[in-house]
Design a protein around this nucleic acid. Structure first.
Lengths: 104, 104
DNA sequence: CGAGTATATGTCAGACCCGACATATACGCA
DNA sequence: TGCGTATATGTCGGGTCTGACATATACTCG
């Protein structure tokens, strides 16, 4: 996974929902990034549904506000692993998480 | 996540499908481990369906045979991140991956 | 049995990730 | 405008993960 490329890409703001075929990502890399984006969005949705601020969620997760912000934005320094762990910790079910991934 | 505990636990062979409530894992930790186990099993199934050896799959993934063995066994040194990346790289769809997680 | 093949287990150096902190931006309200 | 709150962005030390290698185990076939 080319971190620099991904950084540029996220900086460009395509996390609004578009697919990155126009960049030189292999289909698998693109899918991985899309999974990350979907989980990040879902984390944000989940948090808002519970009326938590990023700081409050961070406390629950044993993390920091900045990390939550990065998770929700699917920053390149965030992995699917962290997102799954965080969602489960926050109270989401594996069913929910699976659905989000399957819907990518 | 307590690595040592998880190691003991996997050594005990409960990756055959049982839940680890009897150990001092929080429900979230248990869920995470189960997601890992499910993805590991699915990777094995996927590989066998395609009649690949671990070595052949490793080559496709740009990894090594030993790492594939550990992935399939959901070894503690393996993360959900690696499993998702590997499955997508191997040709599984996000739909498949999502289904596996949702079924945990 | 011995050779070949497939899988499992242990270890390690280097790359990567995470939480933390500092700081910036954005918005509402007095 | 100035203050409080919420979110975003940049950076970094220390701990974790990964690919690689060595080696062990298991099974098949001659």
């Amino acid at each position: 996974m080319d971190k620099t490329k991904q950084k540029r890409l996220e900086a460009a703001g395509w996390h609004v929902g578009s697919a990155p075929e126009f960049l030189e990502l292999t289909p698998e890399e693109a899918e991985y990034v899309e999974v990350k984006l979907a989980l990040g969005s879902y984390l944000r949705e989940f948090r808002r549904d519970h009326r938590w601020t990023q700081t409050q969620l961070a406390k629950r997760l044993g993390s920091s506000q900045s990390r939550v912000a990065k998770m929700e934005a699917a920053d390149s320094s965030v992995t699917v692993d962290l997102l799954v762990k965080s969602l489960l910790s926050a109270g989401a079910s594996t069913k929910d998480v699976g659905r989000v991934i399957a819907a990518v």
